[in-house]
Amino acid sequence: MRTFVAPGMGTLLGAALLATALGGAAVAPALLAQSSAVDEIAKYRAALQDGNPAELWEARGEGIWKQKRGPKQATLEQCDIGLGPGVVKGAYARLPRYFADADRVMDLESRLLWCMATLQGFSDADSRKQLFGNGNDRKSDMEALVAYVTSESRGTPMNVGIAHPKEAEMYRVGERIFYFRGGPHDFGCVTCHGDDAKRIRLQELPNLTTKEGAQKAYTTWPAYRVSQGELRSFQWRLYDCFRQQRFPELIFGSDASIALTTFLARNANGAPFDAPAIKR
């Protein structure tokens, strides 16, 4: 069941509609009626686990990885995402990391843009044409690639290192960004993700300042978002958070996005990676 949210409606209202559709039959203001709505959503989520449409993206992504593309007509099979050229298994659990050839710390998405440019000859403009999918006729190759590569790390414990000085710096800068209050609403990541057991409307929020919260949150992205009808990556998650924080638009694969990802991914160390997952 998909909640039909009119264009322009925030996901918050969408979540509210979904919640009331499922469990809000009672009008009485009792606390019981309200907490049962949250339980119903949990049941809905459990029922969704079987038949995750993310598998369709994983299959398409594997095809794209192995396909000769771009001006150089090359596949991505020589792309080094940290464990050597073409080694996909377990690679995502070690990202972001420093790459000597680029002399910078990169997450998966920025590394894929790098490989598309250097191995396949794609221009930056072309590789950024449809980063976020928007329906079956506007599919995102990037999201498919992310689904495939991350699926090959399922079960691998998160293991993001900061031994290289640039990695350590990205972690520290990412932490500052996490606490950065700005924009007309004075929001920072910490505003919503700095406390235990809080929720926006009926959407529970992970406390990203604790190990448990970071582990639970980071290991379940990318995810098929039912309300979007799309597989969404961690770059998308950050982009959409900043949009709702009333910030300007986060540039895909930018340093700030990588720094923040380094901070959150490392905080999740030790937990087995469990994505692509499925979320509301």
Binding site: E169, V173, G183, P248, A256
Partner: peptide
């Protein structure tokens, strides 16, 4: 590190619609 973060934010965002880069300028409270 805070100065690095502020500088990094400025180059990692682009203006879109009504949200300009000036939104990344913090006042004293922020």
């Amino acid at each position: 590190t805070a100065a690095k973060a502020s500088a990094m934010l400025k180059t990692s965002f682009k203006a879109n619609g009504q949200a300009g880069l000036d939104r990344l300028d913090q006042d004293e409270t922020q």
